[in-house]
């Protein structure tokens, strides 16, 4: 386990790390804001990818920089979170999108369907 004291963080690492943390949190907030603001499900499915691509990536990078600069050895395990989230979110979104398409198709909802979906399987 690595621990550090906030006063020991070098200034450059604090500024760079803070900027990345703010970028990540800001993108996450904008993405979830889109979840509230957009009007159809298929538009909303794009909103969380903001949080899971550079939202999570920015925060992981920021915390990596702060931890590495303030401890003797490189702390890189946050990269696992960024990688994991980037690779798994497409799987969940794809399954959700297909489920929504399937449900809309079986209920014959107008507007949500592209043409000739009957042979999509």
């Amino acid at each position: 386990m690595t621990t550090f004291d906030a006063a020991e963080v070098p200034l450059w690492a604090a500024i760079l790390g803070s900027a990345l943390l703010l970028l990540g949190a800001g993108l996450t907030l904008i993405g979830t804001f889109g979840l509230v603001r957009l009007h159809s499900f298929y538009q909303r499915i794009h909103a969380p990818t903001l949080a899971t691509s550079w939202g999570a990536g920015g925060m992981a990078l920021g915390s990596m920089i702060i931890f590495t600069a303030s401890s003797a050895r490189p702390v890189l395990h946050e990269v696992l979170i960024a990688l994991f989230v980037t690779v798994t979110t497409p799987v969940t979104l794809m399954m959700l999108g297909r489920a929504a398409l399937y449900r809309d198709r079986s209920e014959h909802n107008p507007g949500a369907l592209p043409d000739q979906t009957d042979d999509l399987e």
Partner: peptide, 15 residues
């Protein structure tokens, strides 16, 4: 979809 985004936010909050 919202639950999935909530999970991601909780994870980032822990970071």
């Amino acid at each position: 979809l919202a639950l999935d985004a909530l999970y991601v936010c909780a994870m980032l909050e822990l970071l």
